[in-house]
Design a protein around this nucleic acid. Structure first.
Length: 276
DNA sequence: ATGCCTGAAGGGTTCAGA
């Protein structure tokens, strides 16, 4: 099963990039963030091209900002949009949708930005992460939490730690909140696979930042042990950041070793060989 | 460089993003 996550920065503007990318990479499950579309507009725009490609979808959006979705061609069940008991700013925002796809529980998340350390939005970000953690603690079975977490887990995940001193995305409380997700436990499967590589998922549009590879790694796939044990590949699709009309984020792609029907199922130990 | 791009809503500009 191939699972991908992509902050598309407006699915409407990104349609000429998204549809060819689906055809090229052929992911089974796609988590989208910053769709920036209300659900009826999402359906009007995407129902036909997604259905033609075999995808069902669960969108949870709003008209102007935010917005998340899960696309799946391995089943889509138990959809939960939003976090009913989560914090708002001041109102609830469309930042999470969960669904079960081929036996895998999938969360598409768009963590609040935080804007400025110690601002009201920053405290909202921390409260939102705590609420997400409480929600995830109630999950059992194979789980992936995919999306734009708006936190660089370590200094290696920003192009220049000094440039971010005193800014959001790198502060100790944000990293601690992310750490409490990892303690559930969840594993950061891209960093697990590329422990010493320069890996970014976001580059500012301005000043040739992508061209100079001056970015951050803030889009993550976090997997429960049962799911992480099945990861056979995990990488950032930098190609999708190139060319005309890209998002400022690149997709993250993760391949899981699954049953022939695409179901993840329990990890079965290999049969013991008879000795002689 | 103090938002250098990009997108959305709505109106002739402002807010948000990281």
């Amino acid at each position: 099963m191939r699972v991908a996550t992509w902050n598309v920065n407006s699915v409407k503007q990104r349609l000429p990039r998204l549809l060819p990318w689906l055809d090229e990479r052929r992911p089974d499950v796609v988590c989208l963030q910053e769709t920036k579309l209300a659900d009826d507009a999402f359906t009007a725009l995407l129902a036909e091209p997604l259905t033609a490609r075999g995808y069902e979808f669960a969108a949870h959006g709003e008209s102007r900002w935010n917005g998340v979705a899960v696309l799946s061609r391995v089943g889509l069940a138990d959809v939960v949009p939003g976090m009913p008991d989560g914090p708002g700013f001041p109102h609830q925002e469309a930042r999470v949708v969960a669904a079960t796809c081929g036996g895998l529980r999938v969360y598409s998340v768009y963590v609040p930005n935080g804007r400025t350390p110690d601002s009201a939005h920053y405290h909202y970000k921390l409260a939102w992460l705590a609420a997400l953690r409480s929600r995830l603690a109630g999950e059992d079975g194979p789980l992936v939490v995919c999306g734009d977490v708006n936190i660089a887990p370590a200094d290696a995940d920003v192009y220049d730690p000094a440039a971010y001193a005193g800014h959001t995305h790198v502060t100790a409380p944000e990293r601690a909140a992310l750490g409490r997700l990892l303690d559930l436990p969840l594993r950061d499967v891209v960093r697990d696979r590329w422990p010493d590589e320069r890996v970014f998922t976001y580059w500012d549009y301005r000043a040739g930042m992508f061209h100079q590879d001056l970015g951050m790694r803030i889009d993550l796939v976090l997997a429960s042990p049962a799911a992480a044990d099945r990861v056979v590949a995990a990488w950032v699709d930098r190609h999708a950041r190139k060319g005309t009309g890209p998002s400022d984020h690149a997709p993250v792609v993760v391949d899981l070793d699954t049953a022939p029907d695409g179901a993840i199922g329990p990890v079965v130990p290999p049969p013991s060989r008879p000795r002689r």
